[in-house]
Design a protein around this nucleic acid. Structure first.
Lengths: 292, 292
DNA sequence: CATCAAATGTGGAAAAATGCCCATGAACTG
DNA sequence: CAGTTCATGGGCATTTTTCCACATTTGATG
């Protein structure tokens, strides 16, 4: 049995289509088809039903794909271990973080790192979904939710503070009872700062919604209303002014977690970027703290 | 990263030599060398130290070989599952058993099975060491020691009885005090029938030793002395006569275990051979029982 | 119903991997 | 010391694999 055939089969099983699998693998779709056929011959088992428009796994195919996925995990472990063993600082480190945080805080900071270490490429991925570190979708992740998972090393960096902001012209001389609000959309109903905002807003209306913090900031800057924004994003923005928090309801703050796979912890490249992030973000009163 | 390269590397890591690995894999040794080199390039890690006469794994190589061995286990699981899924009775079933038991009991019996099922090939391996069912060195194993292992299904078949035997001419009119003995060699000092024999023999001398029960039987048949032999081997042999056991010391008997990997339990081929073995060997008074 | 996009299937040409030959050097064996 | 085993390197014929262009089918859409 050819292991390379298995690798192709795993991807086919995940994608469900020859063409998709071929794109993922960077080969021609005919190659995937031939390899799967070869695997079937070797194992003497029909793994897929060849439908006109899609490949559908048979029952046996499902069972075997399940086992092969196990091999895939091991293969990723091999690659992580190999990557950690490479002592050079040349190569790519992929950092995943919440989108606004990535663009506002990390992008400028990490730029300097790249100039200090020629050959080091930092790939910054602003992603709202959590990247699978096990699959090496990222080497390092910064997250707002405490991550959990087999083989992951977690470290709390700091607290991100949130405050109410509005455009200066909007806030000036306006009775707080007439405030209108800018908020996350329904998909983010459960995040702490959104729940806090709803509590603060009470019966006052929400006039604009988005799932993207940058858009909320723009809308607020344009004078649509009052928003809760992370201080790192808003405190230095001349188009925004921080409002005093309502008494009695503590403004939200969220911890920022750094996660890395334990296999990569000792990689020279990853270590370098990690240390840089830790140094940059460990200050307890980070971002808008000074204004507080 | 090419998984085929990893497969070759696993074998190289196990064998420690290009040529050995090539023989195991059925390829040219240059291919193994080329593949390992390709793997090193892909992972950017030196996996082996090229000594003049042997490949020695580096520290990183050891780590990665360890992980790759995990993949190897998964690969075997894939193959077992595939084999179990094949509903046809065509193909090969490999049975491992203690050598004498294989040649005396199984070989004649299993022959009939092959004639009843054309296309079914039974491979009978008489092995003293225990075959690794996980690595598919055998599909079914018969063992005298209770097997243990992840994913193995074990079933007790029967008890194998042992008795004292000698050549008829040797036993006739000889004072038991003058018996001389035929026994296993020192490597089998700990097996039950050997310990029993030493107890029975007491101060009387052992004049011939071997690690092979068939050789012991031959030596006994030739009149060298008295041996403890499994009844299945000796009871129907006209050149041997069973001696009455000494009073007070119960003659040994050993359980016979059937083992199969759970993944293969439902394979049609394996099931067939298993059922055949169970039917053939489940009789509680198997072998020399009738003569007892 | 015609059209378009996306998917699989087919066959021949190009590219890559493999086996095999050789010679060389180094180390173990008797 | 001769013989054997093992790894290296180069070169080359052969086999295998892969790609590419094209045909075909299907389902969605206007």
């Amino acid at each position: 049995m050819n292991w390379e055939d298995l690798r192709h089969f795993v991807v086919l099983a995940q994608t469900g289509s020859l063409s998709e699998a071929a794109r993922h693998l960077g080969v021609d779709h005919t190659t995937v088809a031939r390899r799967v056929a070869a695997l079937e011959t070797a194992l003497k088992v029909r793994l897929v039903d060849r439908l006109p428009r899609a490949y559908l796994l048979t029952e046996d195919g499902e069972r075997i794909a399940q086992l092969a996925r196990g091999m895939d995990e091991q293969a990723h472990a091999v690659m992580r271990t190999a990557s950690a063993a490479d002592p050079s600082l040349v190569g790519c480190v992929r950092v995943s973080a919440p989108p606004v945080f990535a663009s506002v805080v990390l992008a400028p900071g990490l730029g300097g790192l790249a100039t200090d270490h020629p050959g080091l490429v930092v790939e910054l991925a602003g992603e709202s979904h959590t990247a699978a570190l096990e699959r090496r979708e990222a080497d390092i992740a910064l997250r707002l939710l405490e991550p959990a998972g087999e083989g992951l090393v977690v470290r709390k960096l700091c607290e991100l503070s949130y405050s109410l902001y509005a455009a200066p012209s909007y806030a000036q001389d306006r009775d707080p009872a007439e405030y209108r609000f800018v908020a996350y959309d329904s998909s983010l109903e459960q995040v702490p700062q959104q729940r806090w905002l709803m509590q603060v807003a009470g019966p006052r209306p929400v006039v604009f919604r988005s799932n993207d913090a940058a858009s909320l900031a723009s809308a607020t800057r344009a004078g649509l209303g009052v928003a809760v924004l992370p201080d790192f994003l808003a405190h230095a923005d001349p188009g925004l002014v921080r409002l005093a928090p309502p008494v009695g309801i503590l403004p939200p703050s969220r911890p920022l977690w750094l996660v890395v796979h334990e296999d990569l912890r000792r990689s020279a490249r990853v270590r370098l970027v990690m240390d840089f992030l830790i140094a940059m973000l460990s200050a307890p009163v980070f971002g808008g703290g000074a204004k507080r």
